[in-house]
Amino acid sequence: MDTTANACRLRRDQTLAEKTLWKLVRNRRLGGFRFLRQVPIDRYFADFVCEAGKLIVELDGASHEGREDYDACRTQTLELFGYVVLRLPNERVLGDPGGAAEDILAVLRLDRLKPLTLPPPAAAGPSLSL
């Protein structure tokens, strides 16, 4: 399978929810974060990826009904690559695009507000001077 051709096809044949969300996140419009769409990761194509925030946004429409086990396995695989996976129903994006954007920003900001883990202070020992 040619992943580049498949990614191009997926970008060309977007759903209405994908088009709506893309208008909100493209060109760093959402909080200055850069998003890419239909990014191949392992054997999957992630709908929207923000590398800086290690976030994947997956839109779930009617085709996801009855595929909860598949989606859970997919999410687990994507998380192994260090991403947080946020699943949004198409209805959320189409009915309240601003609210969907706020949901995404909340996850991105939450990740950024994690406290830094600092190394323990060096043990006080004899100082060397030359």
Rank of each mutant, 00 (worst) to 15 (best):
M1R: 12
M1T: 09
T3P: 06
T4K: 13
N6E: 13
A7T: 05
A7Q: 06
C8D: 15
C8G: 13
R9K: 12
R9W: 11
R11F: 07
T15L: 01
T15P: 00
T15A: 01
L16K: 08
L16V: 09
A17K: 02
A17M: 03
T20Y: 04
T20N: 05
T20M: 11
T20P: 04
W22A: 05
W22D: 04
K23E: 15
V25T: 05
V25E: 02
R26V: 08
R28H: 13
R28M: 07
R28T: 06
R29N: 14
L30Q: 09
L30M: 08
G31K: 09
G31E: 09
G32V: 08
G32Y: 13
F33V: 10
F33E: 09
R34T: 09
F35H: 01
F35A: 03
Q38G: 08
Q38C: 09
V39H: 15
P40A: 02
I41A: 03
I41P: 00
I41M: 06
D42K: 10
D42T: 08
Y44V: 07
Y44G: 03
Y44F: 15
F45L: 06
A46Q: 04
F48G: 02
F48M: 07
F48W: 04
V49K: 01
V49C: 04
V49F: 02
C50N: 06
C50T: 08
K54H: 13
I56G: 00
I56N: 00
E58H: 01
E58Y: 02
L59P: 02
L59C: 05
L59I: 10
G61R: 01
A62P: 07
S63W: 03
H64D: 08
H64M: 07
E65N: 11
R67N: 12
E68C: 03
Y70M: 10
D71C: 02
A72Y: 02
C73L: 15
C73R: 14
R74F: 07
R74C: 00
Q76L: 10
E79P: 00
E79I: 02
L80V: 03
G82N: 01
G82I: 06
Y83D: 01
Y83P: 01
V84W: 06
V85D: 01
L86F: 04
L86C: 07
R87F: 05
L88N: 02
L88D: 02
E91Y: 07
E91F: 00
V93T: 01
V93E: 00
L94Q: 00
G95S: 14
G95A: 11
P97G: 06
P97H: 02
G98H: 13
E102G: 13
E102D: 15
D103T: 09
L105A: 08
A106P: 03
V107R: 08
L108V: 07
R109W: 12
L110W: 15
D111W: 09
D111L: 11
D111T: 11
R112F: 12
L113Q: 15
P115H: 06
T117C: 14
L118F: 12
P119D: 11
P119W: 01
P121D: 11
P121Y: 09
A124V: 15
P126K: 06
S127A: 14
S127H: 14
L128Q: 12
L128W: 15
S129G: 12
L130P: 15
